[in-house]
Structure formats: C-alpha cells, structure tokens
C-alpha cells in the first residue's frame, strides 16, 4: 500500500522524459531525456528495494545509478566527436 503511494507518482514522472525522447529530433535533447530516464529508473529501483527491505536489489540500484552516468558521459563524448567531423 505504502509502496504504491510513492512509486506510482515516480512512474508518472518517468513518462515525461519518455515522451520527450520519442518526440524530439535533436540528439542532445534525446540524450538529456535518456539521462533523466536513467536517473529515475535507478531511483525507483532504490526506493522499491528499501521498501521491500531487500539489500541485494538495493546494491544493484546504486550500481546502476553510478554506472549509467559513466556510460552517458562516454556516449556524449562520442556524439560530440561525430558532430565536429
């Protein structure tokens, strides 16, 4: 019950960058939407793990939170190189 109250608004917030990634045609706007989605999904994982009192899922949530950012930076640099050439 409590978990539904918290997670359902988070899910609705997740839908906004989803729509943006579908609609916008600029590569940077899409990347921005992706970064937002990556952060939000990791945080939903973390909240679900804490509410279920499940340590294993929580560790995975934190790992996804930090690793997703690293991958995004890599992708941003490659896209920048492509735009320059």
């Amino acid at each position: 019950m409590h978990s539904n109250i918290i997670i359902i608004p988070m899910m609705v917030a997740l839908l906004i960058p989803f729509y943006e990634a579908y609609r916008d045609d600029n590569v940077w706007q899409k990347l921005l939407a992706f970064s937002s989605i990556a952060c939000k999904t990791a945080l939903i994982t973390l909240v679900a793990s804490v509410l279920r009192d499940d340590w294993m899922i929580g560790v995975v949530g934190v790992l996804i939170l930090s690793v997703g950012n690293a991958g995004l930076m890599l992708l941003a640099h490659i896209v920048k190189r492509v735009n320059e050439a």
Binding site: A21, V27, K30, L31, G71, L75, V79, V82
Partner: peptide, 29 residues
C-alpha cells in the same frame, strides 16, 4: 543510428528496472 543508440539506452534502463522489480537483481546488473 545515433538516435536508435540513445533509445537503446532507454530500453536498457527500463529493462533493468523491470528485472529488479521482479526480483532478478543479477539479470538487471
């Protein structure tokens, strides 16, 4: 191709979220 790469990242993020919510932490990682 670049847009589809970014969208692939979104797909991966959503998939990882679903796997963890279903309890498969190793698959999600």
């Amino acid at each position: 191709p670049y847009y589809s790469l970014i969208t692939r990242g979104i797909l991966g993020a959503v998939a990882a979220l679903i796997y963890t919510l279903l309890g498969a932490a190793d698959v999600a990682l």
